[in-house]
Design a protein around this nucleic acid. Structure first.
Lengths: 218, 218
DNA sequence: ATGTATGTCAAACACTTGTTCTATTTTTTG
DNA sequence: CAAAAAATAGAACAAGTGTTTGACATACAT
C-alpha cells in the first residue's frame, strides 16, 4: 500500500513473509512475495529467500512449494494493532511443567501439590527437552536469581565453564554456576554467604543448563 | 509402517495431515498424504481432503500447493509422551508484544526493529491490558532486574507505596520503585549509583505496575 | 575511467502438485 | 444374487511454482 519502498528489498521480503504466514497460516509463494515486497522478478525474491535462509531467519526447503517456515527469534511475531495483547498461539510455543522435588532413589518426578506450568518459546530450548524448577533460597542472588523465581532448564549432560546449571548432588537439586578450582569441578553459589560445592564426588550429575527465568512475585 | 490399516481411510488422512503439520510446520502435499495414509492414488486423497474440508476439520484452498490448514477444534491435543513438555496452548495464555520506546508527543508506540513477544498466563494480568518492556540499564539491579530482561507491565494509573512500576517522565519510560519522601512522590532506582527522581512535576505519569519478569540471556 | 560486485529484471524451463477422468474393486442395498 | 453405490486405483492433464540463465543498471572499489 505504501508508496515508498522504505527499507531494503530483503527486509521487505522478510516482513512480507512473516505477515503472510501470520495472516494465512500458510507460506507465500515466490510470486506472492513478488507482489507483497514490490519486486518484479521471481528471481530477485528467490535470491533473498536463499539469503534469509542462510541468515537463519527462515527455513527454506528447496523445490518444495510454499515451504517457507519462520525460524522464530525469541518472541518474533509482528501481529498487529491489537493494543498489545492477542490471543492465539503458534506452534512455536511450548508448555513446560514445573518439577519441584527430588527424592532419594528416583531421579526427578513431578511435584504433586500443584503443577505450575509456563509457556515459553520453542526456540529457547531448541529440539531438546526442558523443564521448570522453582528456585528456593537465595544462593544465586548475585546472579539475580531470586527465591521464588522459575528457571527454565534445558536438559543436557554437559556444560561449559561459567554456565549456570541445574545439578543433582546426591538427592538434592540445586542451581549453581559451574566452574573449576585447582583442576576440579565445583558448583559456585552466587552468594558470599555460601561456599563452593565440590562437584566431583559420587552422585553428582548435571541436569541441564538454565536458559530462562520467569518471575511473577514482584 | 503398521501392517494393519486400523481405521478408515479418511481418518488416516486426517491423522496424517495433523501429524505432518505438527512435525514440519508445513502442509503435506497430496502425494505425501498418499504415502502417509497408505493410499495409492492421489485421487483418493483428494476426495477425502474435500470431505474433510466440508466437515470443517481442515481448511483446504483449491489449487494452492501445500495449502491445508488445520481448523483446530477446541482442545484436541492427542500429542504424546514428551515427558514434561507439551505443545498446544489453552486460551488462558495471552500474547504480549514488546513495546520499546517513547517519543515526545505520542504515548507509546511499538518498537521498530523487531517486535518481540512473549506468552504469559492470563491470570497474571487479570482483565486489564498489559504490555512488555525490555529493560535497558542497571538502575534496578538491586531489585534483581537486569539489563535485557523483559518486564510485564499491567496497565494502571495508580499504584501503592513500594510498588515497582513503569512510568513516564517527560518522554522517557523508566522502571522504578514508587515511594514518598517528605510527603512528595519519588521514583527510587534500586542502584546506589542513581538518585531518586522527583515524580511530581509536569509530564509524570504512571504507565502500570510490573507484575512479571522474563529473562532469556543467562 | 575501468573493472567488479550487487541489485533487479524478464523470460524460459522443469518439476511439483492439484485436479480430473475413467476403470476396477469392494461394499452396501434391495 | 444382482444392481447400485462407494472406495480406490492409475494415468494423464494443467496449473502453480521453484529455479536458472542472461542481461542491464547501479554502486563500489581500484
Amino acid at each position: 500500500m505504501s508508496e515508498l519502498k522504505s527499507s531494503k528489498a530483503i527486509d521487505r521480503v522478510y516482513q512480507y513473509v512473516k505477515q503472510y504466514i501470520h495472516e494465512n497460516a500458510l507460506s507465500p509463494s515466490v510470486r506472492d512475495i513478488c507482489k507483497g515486497a514490490e519486486l518484479k522478478s521471481t528471481s530477485s525474491v528467490h535470491t533473498y529467500l536463499k539469503r534469509l535462509n542462510d541468515l537463519g531467519l527462515i527455513e527454506y526447503r528447496p523445490g518444495m512449494r510454499r515451504a517457507i517456515i519462520l525460524k522464530d527469534t525469541i518472541g518474533d511475531s509482528s501481529d498487529e494493532h491489537v493494543s498489545s495483547t492477542t490471543e492465539h498461539t503458534p506452534a512455536s510455543v511450548i508448555k513446560l511443567n514445573c518439577i519441584g522435588k527430588i527424592t532419594a532413589g528416583q531421579p526427578i518426578y513431578a511435584h504433586e501439590d500443584y503443577s505450575d506450568s509456563i509457556y515459553v518459546n520453542k526456540s529457547l530450548i531448541g529440539s531438546s527437552d526442558a523443564f521448570l524448577l522453582k528456585v528456593q533460597g537465595t544462593s544465586m542472588i548475585n546472579a539475580h536469581i531470586m527465591d521464588g523465581d522459575y528457571i527454565i532448564v534445558r536438559k543436557q549432560d554437559h556444560c561449559n565453564e561459567g554456565d549456570i546449571i541445574a545439578a543433582l548432588i546426591g538427592d538434592e537439586a540445586t542451581v549453581k554456576r559451574y566452574g573449576h578450582m585447582n583442576g576440579l569441578p565445583y558448583l559456585f553459589p552466587e552468594n558470599d554467604l555460601y561456599e563452593p560445592i565440590p562437584f566431583h564426588s559420587e552422585g553428582c550429575r548435571i541436569l541441564g543448563k538454565v536458559v530462562g527465568l520467569h518471575r511473577y512475585n514482584i
